[in-house]
Simulated assay, not measured.
Amino acid sequence: MNSDALYYILANIVAMITLLCLFIGNLNHGDYHYKQYSMNHLLIAVILLCGQDIFWTLVDHDIVPKNNTTFILANYIMCVAILYVCGAWLCYTQTINGKTDAHFIKRVKTIIGFYVISAIVLAPVLFIFQDFWIQDGRPIMGLYVMIYAFAIVTFFAISSISIRLLVQRENYIHRKTYIINALSPIVALGFGFIQMFTVEIPLMCSGLSITMLLLVMSSLLFQNITDPLTGLMNRNGLRKAIDRIEESSKVSKHEHLLIMVDLNDFKNKNDTLGHLKGDEILVNFASAIREYTNKTDNKTIVCRYGGDEFLIIVKNANDKSADEFKTILEDLLRSREETKDVHFSAGYVMWNGTLSTFDNKLSAADQLMYKDKKYNKSQNLMNGN
């Protein structure tokens, strides 16, 4: 083995150790489930790809014999790496689809189940019947179908989810995220298809590397406009949404409803029950608002404005929409076990969609919300609560 190959192997080993340290650190210090699971799956995929690079270097220098077994083993390692990329992408896709932590955990358990099943089924089939899969020194098409079938189905599922979200106009704030998320699996599939006809060149590694880079870019774009705790839009996303509403208002003169919502007695609950319980209340309330937007026909924008304050913009609304909002949301909170004791105050004003009037209207809604909060507090005192 020459010095270049030795340095290449050492560099991959150092990279694997570094990534392993990051993986262990992320296990202990990951903040929210989707970030933790997505990043862990991505780190494992890169570690496996580094391991495959070392393996192929040893094969090329005749340290490991080049035969059907080594070829199938290399593809099998690649398959597992792809499955981990799929795992990362599925966790992340659940996030942009507005799912909760419980959905992430359930989905990840399903993915791990697929890993185990694929390992149990594929390994004996591939290694026992080697001569069937490798003929005249080249793999038959069935080998690729066998190894990469689950990954291909998963990539198509991820891409179709993102395309569906992309065409929904209410999701235009995440447009760049959805475009990258929809195109990236196609990049991986394209490289994989070319790989079938160019066995000697490891194009699939390049395709996976680009795919993982795009996944990180997509995740960063999403996090820039998303509140990490609730998954709702943050202020950055709100500003982008307002800009788009102003553009559409130049064409159509529709009125929009601004609703400022604040949770009653949240500070007291946060101080007495603890911050973790406070976070749980915020997440459950955000989930209820998201369910409300799914039940209504309105194109509704929901933003966690700060702390326990939420801003809701009901597009193309009228004065009756405010009363409908409060009634539907209160009924929804009462019907859910985790939010039946959560109460809120709200202030709302009509807005014409122009940027110049937004801050004044928002301030007016905020003042009305505090009046409603004061009224609710006095009613509770009168009732002895």
Rank of each mutant, 00 (worst) to 15 (best):
M141T: 09
M141H: 06
M141K: 02
G142F: 09
G142N: 10
G142I: 09
G142M: 07
G142S: 13
L143Q: 02
L143H: 09
Y144A: 03
Y144D: 03
Y144S: 08
Y144G: 07
Y144V: 00
Y144C: 01
V145T: 13
V145C: 00
V145K: 01
V145Y: 01
V145I: 12
M146F: 09
M146Q: 06
I147F: 02
I147Y: 03
I147Q: 12
Y148T: 11
A149W: 12
A149M: 09
A149D: 09
A149R: 12
F150V: 13
F150D: 12
F150S: 01
F150R: 06
F150E: 08
A151M: 07
A151C: 11
A151G: 09
A151K: 14
A151L: 02
I152W: 15
I152C: 13
I152R: 14
V153M: 15
V153R: 12
V153L: 15
T154N: 13
F155E: 10
F155L: 08
F156R: 00
F156E: 11
A157C: 04
A157Y: 14
A157F: 11
A157L: 09
A157T: 09
A157H: 08
I158G: 00
I158C: 03
I158F: 05
S159V: 08
S159H: 01
S159L: 05
S159K: 04
S160F: 08
S160L: 14
S160A: 15
I161R: 13
I161D: 14
I161M: 14
S162D: 12
S162T: 02
S162C: 15
I163C: 15
I163R: 00
I163Y: 14
I163S: 07
R164I: 08
R164N: 08
R164H: 10
L165P: 04
L165V: 00
L165S: 06
L166K: 05
L166W: 01
V167M: 14
V167E: 13
Q168S: 07
R169I: 07
R169W: 10
R169G: 04
R169K: 11
E170C: 12
E170I: 15
N171L: 05
N171R: 02
N171G: 02
N171Y: 01
N171E: 01
Y172C: 05
Y172I: 01
I173D: 02
I173F: 04
I173M: 08
I173C: 05
I173G: 05
H174E: 00
R175P: 11
R175K: 07
R175H: 14
